[in-house]
Amino acid sequence: MSAPTRPDSPVRLEALIGALKGRGILTEDELTARQAQTDCASPEIGARMVARAWLDPEWRRLLLSDGSAAAEAMGVSMAGAPPLGVLEDMPRRHHLVVCTLCSCYPRAVLGYPPHWYKSFAYRARAVRDPRGVLAEWGTVLPKGVEVRVVDSTADYRWMVLPLRPEGTDGWSEDRLAAIVTRDALVGVALPQVTPRTVAV
């Protein structure tokens, strides 16, 4: 478990918000609306983008050349958001995304970053011991596959386009999207064709 929020922290937060409201800087409605909008983003958006790229070469080109435009085409508003970059896995190259300096994450298409992505252990180890980190997810890369760790240090946000797994021929976009997990979009896991998903 991550450390719980201290009891006095919500009190401090409400003091700050109260003071900002008192100065006429923001309203409760604005806060509620902003939170609701943030809650809408989820890895299902990224998964859909990947599934489409596996099926449609034209879309794949767009996704790789301009991730933000692709997100917009999915109905995601990228106005003011950092540009989205998409990293294409290859048969001999696997990408893993981390932000060692803070917690940069493609929130527009993946939602809130999970706790582990922001954890000190992940930030410290992903750039130095990426295969050890992958092993904790049970991810073992085939022999001959190199790991390219992407440290998200500046203005872009990065998402992985994983390889389409074997055994998915003829699958629909929905069915493909269902095997693209958030972890696969960060690069700690690979899309899995499990008996459960096959049975769908």
């Binding site: 943030t38 809408c40 983003a41 508003s77 003011g80 950092p82 527009a108």
Partner: peptide, 10 residues
């Protein structure tokens, strides 16, 4: 979805 996320990127 989070337009305010990166003001520098804007």
């Amino acid at each position: 979805m989070t337009p305010a996320e990166g003001t520098s990127a804007a």
